[in-house]
């Protein structure tokens, strides 16, 4: 495979085609997982993945094209929230098809790539001592529990029933 990603530093047509190709591959794998694991009809979830891929493409493209130093994650989030907003003409269509894409099917395929990407940092990882590993584990746990406990206290104080 040629360097699929290296062309994506600036938006050439070349880069965009590669992104689309990657998104199509990703969508197909996800739809198959979605069908096998959750029995969602293939066409519905394929359209759902199409919508999600399109949002992603626009978001990534905006990040490269607009002069602001804003991450594509923010563009994608705003577009996603807007088109699903109750009352928007697009919302019914989007919600119907996107609801046929299980989050877990996306996550599973995504994490396989995370695993391969992780392998790349393996040598640097081995060079760090066990003390740093201990600190990392504690830091992640502290972030998670800190947020969970504060959220829980506020939810209880504001009287949100435990569903």
């Amino acid at each position: 495979m040629p360097d699929l990603i290296d062309g994506s530093e600036n938006v050439s047509v070349h880069g965009i085609f590669n992104w689309i190709l990657l998104l199509i591959i990703f969508s197909i794998i996800t739809v198959i997982g979605n069908y096998l694991g959750y029995k969602h009809p293939m066409t519905d979830s394929l359209i759902g993945m199409g919508i999600l891929s399109l949002i992603t493409l626009i978001g990534v493209w905006l990040e490269r094209e607009l002069p602001f130093n804003i991450s594509s994650i923010l563009y994608i989030s705003v577009i996603g929230i807007l088109i699903a907003f109750p009352g928007m003409p697009t919302s019914e269509f989007v919600l119907y098809y996107v609801s046929h894409v299980e989050l877990l099917s996306i996550v599973t395929v995504f994490l396989a790539y995370v695993g391969i990407g992780m392998g790349k940092s393996w040598d640097e990882f081995k060079a760090l001592g066990w003390r740093a590993v201990v600190i990392t584990i504690l830091v992640i746990a502290a972030t998670y529990y800190g947020a969970a406990i504060v959220a829980h206290i506020v939810l209880v104080l504001t009287g949100v029933p435990a569903v």
Partner: peptide, 16 residues
């Protein structure tokens, strides 16, 4: 790129 798809799915749920 795939993070984008994941974020898009979460954003649609947020909008809803």
């Amino acid at each position: 790129l795939f993070i984008g798809v994941l974020i898009a799915k979460l954003a649609v749920s947020s909008g809803q």
